[in-house]
Design a binder for these strands. Structure first.
Length: 475
RNA sequence: GGCGCUAUCGUCUAGAGGCCUAGGACACAGCCCUCUCAAGGCUGGAACACGGGUUCGAAUCCCGUUAGCGCUACCA
């Protein structure tokens, strides 16, 4: 069996939507799983709305997700001649016909039908102009559109995700394949391209189901092999409506900005509408590729759950080595206006990553642990100081007395832990009463990694300075 | 309106006639661990849209109803 050829064909009329990204991911997983070829085709035939900037955003988004392609990007705009030739061939073979009706005349007919409470249908016999009028317009060189004569027969296919889907040709209008300006309409262009590119599996959004019978009719009329279709359901927002800007982040770039890791995004998107068949949730790239299959794609739409995405991101944050997080964290720190180096940041990431759900949270935690930065006092930190009253400052002074003698070389997590534990023991202090004030002094808040690790990562000088400041300016 | 698609916990899903008094994950609640918070562990509440069939037996097959969504362009 020859390896499959699939394609991802976005329109550069906007950013890369999560739905589009998932379609791309499914195509990519299928290609990688089967050893097939993924073609990237940019469908830029809508000249009004297509822009190079959008194309770039889409390419960037795919790159961020780690999705690569084997052929392309091919710009559909450059293929117009072949589209036209296919349409003209259909015309020559009598499988399509000229329609001299102008767009305005068509609109009038449509309105009339709607006003009469009827369903508007393009009726070949009823709407067609009288022969004399056709001849007159033809002689005058009037522009015409080309309509495909849909055969009155059953059009059915075995969809890889939905099973058998069947339509009656008579339920389809004779649709236009060539505009009066000579350019091809989407349905024809897609068929022409997919056939020319020898695409074997069309994996695309559910919203194309109703285009499929038209396209199959076109494949048949043109004598091309009909590919296998796999229609992937749409992604919905929390309210069950199609995911849109109203729901907040929908562009793939938004998630990058939110501090989502590409690996987590990929994993999450894969599980949205696809299942490996068992209870596994965390599936690294290789696993995804190994287990992916069209038949495990869900046939109903899925609601996008940002909370679960963040949970998954937290899982990746915890398990990924700090080294792999340095780049995204550095990127985020730059956005926060902090410039630093990888060597400084890596050890801090190591101790804070387990507690974070997003790269943004990691970056913020890293920032707070760097010398000379301003500490933002959190309400909980103040509340603790207030609750402890005098003991807050007293315990901090006690801690200082014990920590100050520790030399720079001894300022390590194990050493500090031993020292702090001994102090609490000696003074009969509850561990929390000793540790929490230090935590508040160093971070402003009540949550962090274990205090000895925190002290180690912040460093001797900065730690002592922050504790002193907290003693001087209590809650 | 017509045509088509879909229907398991709040959400993502497992389930391809008996293994289902329906399993897992997120979220939620409680407990454990613990200097805090995460993580982790344990426990709990929570679903087969409805109605008919078929069958010894149905979440699983068929039909209908309801609901949601998509298309119905000289957009893609």
């Amino acid at each position: 069996m020859t390896p499959p050829r699939v394609r991802f064909a976005p329109s550069p009329t906007g950013y890369l939507h999560v739905g589009g990204a998932r379609t791309a991911l499914f195509n990519w997983l299928f290609a990688r799983h089967t050893g097939g070829t993924l073609v990237l085709r940019i469908e830029d035939t809508d000249r009004e709305r297509s822009t190079d900037a959008h194309t770039q955003v889409i390419l960037d988004g795919l790159g961020w997700l780690g999705l690569d392609w084997d052929e392309g990007p091919i710009f559909q705009g450059t293929l117009a001649e072949r589209h036209r030739a296919d349409a003209l061939r259909l015309l020559a073979e009598g499988k399509a016909y000229r329609d001299y009706l102008t767009a305005d005349e068509l609109a009038v007919a449509r309105e009339a039908a709607t006003a009469a409470g009827e369903t508007f249908r393009f009726d070949r016999t009823r709407l067609a102009l009288p022969a004399a009028e056709v001849a007159r317009r033809e002689a005058a060189g009037a522009p015409y559109a080309v309509r495909f004569a849909v055969p009155d027969a059953e059009i059915a296919w075995d969809d890889a995700v939905h099973g058998r889907i069947s339509w009656q040709g008579r339920d389809l209008d004779d649709f236009i394949i060539l505009r009066s300006d000579g350019s091809a309409i989407y349905n024809l262009a897609v068929v022409s391209d997919d056939a020319a590119m020898a695409i074997t599996h069309v994996i695309r959004g559910d919203d194309h189901i109703s285009n499929t019978p038209k396209q199959i009719a076109l494949y048949r009329a043109l004598g091309y092999d009909v590919p296998i279709f796999a229609h992937v359901p749409v992604i919905l927002g929390q309210d069950g409506k199609k995911l849109s800007k109203r729901h907040g982040a929908t562009a793939i770039g938004d998630y990058q900005d939110m501090g989502i890791l590409a690996a987590a995004m990929r994993n999450f998107l894969a599980l949205l509408g696809w299942s490996p068949g068992n209870d596994d949730e965390i599936l690294p790239e290789a696993e995804l590729i190994a287990r992916f299959g069209l038949d495990q794609i869900q046939s109903k739409p899925a609601v996008f759950d940002t909370t679960k995405l963040e949970w998954m991101n937290g899982q990746y944050l915890s398990s990924l080595p700090a080294d792999e997080l340095v780049a995204p964290v550095l990127r985020e720190l730059t956005r926060l206006g902090v410039s630093t180096r990888a060597e400084r940041v890596a050890p801090i990431i190591e101790v804070v990553k387990a507690r974070a759900r997003t790269v943004t949270m990691v970056a913020e935690a890293v920032r707070v642990r760097m010398p000379g930065v301003e500490i933002i006092r959190e309400p909980k930190g103040d509340a603790l100081a207030a609750k402890m009253g005098e003991r807050f400052g007293k315990n901090l002074r006690l801690a200082t007395e014990n920590l100050e003698p520790i030399p720079e070389e001894g300022w390590t997590a194990p050493e500090l832990e031993r020292d702090l534990l001994a102090l609490a023991e000696a003074r009969g202090l509850k561990l929390g009463d000793l540790m929490q004030p230090i935590r508040v002094a160093l971070t402003g808040g009540t949550v962090s990694e274990p205090v000895h690790e925190l002290l180690a990562v912040v460093g001797r000088g900065e730690s002592l300075r922050r504790i002193a400041a907290a003693i001087a300016a209590p809650g």
